[in-house]
Design a protein around this nucleic acid. Structure first.
Lengths: 345, 345
DNA sequence: TAGGGCTTCGTAAACGTTTCGGAGAAAAAT
DNA sequence: ATTTTTCTCCGAAACGTTTACGAAGCCCTA
């Protein structure tokens, strides 16, 4: 005899009453409830999740899919660990557990997601690293599983997302560089079709146009989102017939490799070329020279993600007013010395 | 009508036969099996996990618990993403899925683990960041859930683990420093009671003893595992009446903050003090000067973890010979310039 | 032709939980 | 005193799956 049955037998009441007592249902004598609660605690009873979710159709768990592997995300652990901490702060208030579902580098993300959805392990999903056209979004919509995307997507149909302010970053970064006299400004973009690359690129082009700077495709370098990618970007820029005077990068990790290649060529960031990175990482301030980049609170972003997902879960409609969230997350400029290089007029 | 029932109805055979066909059981006509498989694929049938695991008592999923939050792990980089990728490579061969269970910074890790085990969501567990006396180990042993720890522990009772070669690192690091004439060698340790701190400390003391260097408790600094911790370590070392000539750090992240504080004081690593870090991170080579540290393959470590867990799961006894794994994972020295500082005799 | 073995399939039970409908008793209303 | 309401509780069904058991049909042997 196991589970609730054992508990009921020991207390000599029916399993139905035990269940109602445990779940705070009204029609149970308060004295009985106290006995049940005490006995449950005493024998360390915890409801079997399989049984419960089979009956309930819900699992009290939320999934957060990321890509595993060390070079894919363009973000160190700390990005996801930070965001997750915020997400958890929201969910724990409602006794929802967060499970992180890492998609192997060897598997197609949408196939993976399909499996995970089919598993029926979660009541909602947070997806990250959205692509330009992301099959996962259609998949989740079809499965009618509440979800929110960390990152916009060009996928048709309304779906909730929160995304970083890539246009704003591109705008402010380029404004800053133009103010220092730069006009040949290169951009380092991801080589895959992750959507943020497109968004950032659009912001870049718009900012240039605003300043009346003609767009030069040779200044657009696409590379992997890792340190190696940054190295490659620097390499290509150095080989350009007419070298840019400034570069803005989509990933901070790229800055590390970019610095390395520039140093090899005797080109010092901040003195011979202006560099602006994107999201501030642990090492940004400790690069030499410190990287000018943009900061955001990972935890706050996680909280926003969590609350927005709640807002699309019908089961919590009373607590979180339902609605379709589409939100641009602001970032704060962190001035370093990597863009000190100024072009005299 | 849903699930297997719908499939059976459509094919006009019993659900039992459908189930057996799907699961590759022998007593089903091959022609029938083909029909079932085809129909299942056509209507995108996937077995409900709750129903299955209720019946089976197994879930075909493995848990990997880590600590969320950005400053707790001491790994500001891709440590977990790298390890997870290796773990997944093993499990995917057996159609086991990996779920990462991040313990919030606000919750007690063993309470959290208890909940996750009780959830019955996983057939096995990998725990990380083991402590000196780790309640989670006893908990998992009592629950008879197969598990392996990434990190040793002083917890009594036999349990499987894989751990980095902290003694080896301490030994080789100190040998290297002593060979350069250092005798006042400080050590930066974590401030919490994570077990690796003790192991590293023991290795440090043993290595000193081997060289006949008296142990000086004032050279042992405990701090948070983040960049801030490293800053604090440097600060305390600088304030010592007799400053050490070398320092060895348990976390690479500490090196970043340590460098910062040292630079503020005009003390240059590699010239005025020798610094050795522990695990190589993405930025180790790009610190100025490059950090002397130790390297390991995260993915290989993950593979070893996965295979070792398999070896403690009775259900896979034919494939992976059962046994209690206790393994020290080697690291490779990566010479930098941070320990170039030599003491003349 | 009777019986035994093999193949294939259907039936039903079981996993642990929640909840619906109702039952019995006590309390309240008539 | 009878009816109605209220308070507790019980029994049973249901969620979707797997599997033990048995039955039916067939082929083969004696």
């Amino acid at each position: 005899m196991k589970g609730i049955r054992r508990l009921a037998q020991q207390l000599d009441i029916s399993i139905g009453t035990v269940s109602r007592a445990l779940n705070g249902k009204p029609d149970v004598n308060e004295q009985t409830r106290a006995r049940v609660l005490e006995a449950a605690a005493a024998m360390g009873y915890v409801p079997n999740q399989a049984g419960r979710s089979l009956r309930e159709g819900s699992t009290k768990a939320i999934g957060f899919t990321i890509e595993s592997g060390t070079d894919t995300a363009g973000n160190g652990d700390n990005f996801f660990l930070g965001v997750i901490d915020g997400v958890q702060a929201v969910f724990s208030r409602h006794h929802l557990d967060l499970v992180v579902l890492p998609c192997s580098t060897e598997e197609d993300p949408s196939q993976y997601l399909r499996r995970m959805v089919a598993r029926g392990m979660v009541d909602g999903m947070i997806i990250s690293a959205t692509h330009r056209r992301d099959a996962r979004i259609e998949l989740l919509a079809n499965a009618r599983l509440p979800f929110i995307a960390l990152g916009r997507s060009g996928t048709p149909g309304p779906h909730p997302w929160i995304d970083l302010d890539f246009e704003g970053v591109a705008n402010r970064g380029i404004d800053r560089l133009v103010a220092k006299g730069h006009r040949r400004i290169a951009v380092g973009l991801p080589s895959n079709d992750i959507n943020l690359g497109f968004v950032f690129f659009e912001g870049y082009k718009a900012a240039l146009a605003r300043h009346g700077i003609p767009f030069d495709p040779t200044l657009v370098i696409r590379a992997g989102s890792s340190e190696q990618g940054g190295y490659q970007i620097a390499h290509e820029l150095l080989n350009l017939p007419e070298r840019p005077t400034a570069v803005i990068l989509i990933y901070e990790m790229m800055a590390i490799g970019l610095y390395r290649r520039l140093n090899e060529a005797g080109v010092r960031p901040g003195r011979d070329i202006a560099v602006i990175g994107f999201r501030e990482g642990p090492q940004s301030r400790f690069l030499s020279p410190p990287l000018t980049c943009f900061r955001l609170s990972l935890r706050d972003l996680g909280v926003a993600l969590g609350e927005s997902l709640m807002a699309s879960m019908p089961a919590y409609a009373e607590i979180y007013p339902q609605g379709l969230v589409r939100r641009i997350w602001p970032l704060e400029l962190v001035p370093g010395e990597s863009d000190d290089f100024t072009i005299p007029r």
